[in-house]
């Protein structure tokens, strides 16, 4: 299967602006686009730069814009793509080099929502009980691999870089929904500001982009409801 990889390139030490470069790539229909990128780098142009590690959709390294959509190069098969495959860095983040973007702004948002279990109650000698039904509430959100496909495809985030964005909100929801967590109020305050959950317009780009099929908008809706309830109570 012959493909053309059209790659948006930028070398900060050489280029004033991004430029496009085409590479012919031969790929079996069951091969991953990542396989094509790796082979191109190893055997054609070593300076082609992108992130990768696990190669099967678990580490979140290889998120990039492929034919207009944020997705994982290691989870997209050649057979599912047209002959021309266009690669660009993830939108909305500063480009460092070729397909590598600066992820710091993304992780800063995640860090800002108290992304850890809070519970200062005395520890039992065994596990804290949690029913399968309670566990099921976090089943969706714990699957997040922090790849940033969602946040990078969110039009609200494009317009407001202070917006927490879908990934950070899913992370917050993961703890809000955990029956073992006691960080409730403090965390809800963190997601309730002008750049928090309420900013989401339910455009659903994030849901479509998520390579893990997480129902992102549902989690944000839960946060919206809970922050709203708290707000009303506070006003009373």
């Amino acid at each position: 299967m012959d493909k053309i990889f059209r790659i948006k390139r930028f070398d900060p030490e050489k280029d004033n602006a991004a430029r496009w470069e085409d590479f012919p790539v031969e790929l079996g229909p069951h091969e991953r686009l990542l396989d094509g990128l790796v082979r191109t780098k190893e055997f054609t142009d070593g300076s082609l730069t992108f992130r990768r590690s696990c190669a099967h959709g678990m580490c979140g390294s290889c998120a990039m814009k492929i034919n207009g959509r944020s997705r994982l190069a290691c989870q997209t098969l050649a057979g599912d793509m047209p002959e021309l495959v266009v690669f660009e860095p993830l939108p909305a983040f500063p480009v460092i080099k070729d397909l590598v973007v600066d992820m710091e702004p993304f992780f800063e948002k995640i860090k800002s929502v108290m992304p850890y279990l809070v519970n200062d109650e005395p520890l039992p000698s065994r596990e804290r009980p949690q029913s399968p039904e309670e566990m099921e509430k976090i089943l969706d959100s714990i699957r997040c691999i922090l790849c940033a496909c969602c946040t990078s495809s969110c039009p609200v985030y494009w317009g407001d870089k202070q917006y927490l964005g879908p990934a950070a909100l899913v992370k917050a929801a993961r703890f809000v929904l955990d029956s073992r967590d006691r960080g409730g109020k403090a965390r809800l305050d963190l997601v309730s500001g002008a750049h928090g959950a309420a900013r989401c317009h339910s455009i659903y780009n994030c849901v479509e982009a998520c390579p893990r099929d997480i129902d992102v908008t549902r989690h944000i809706a839960i946060l919206k409801r809970q922050t709203l309830k708290r707000g009303l109570r506070g006003a009373r």
Partner: peptide
Amino acid sequence: IRLEHLGVPFSRTPQGK
């Protein structure tokens, strides 16, 4: 047990273990 206390979301038995 410590991992659970730190927050690891383990799958559970019907009794919550």
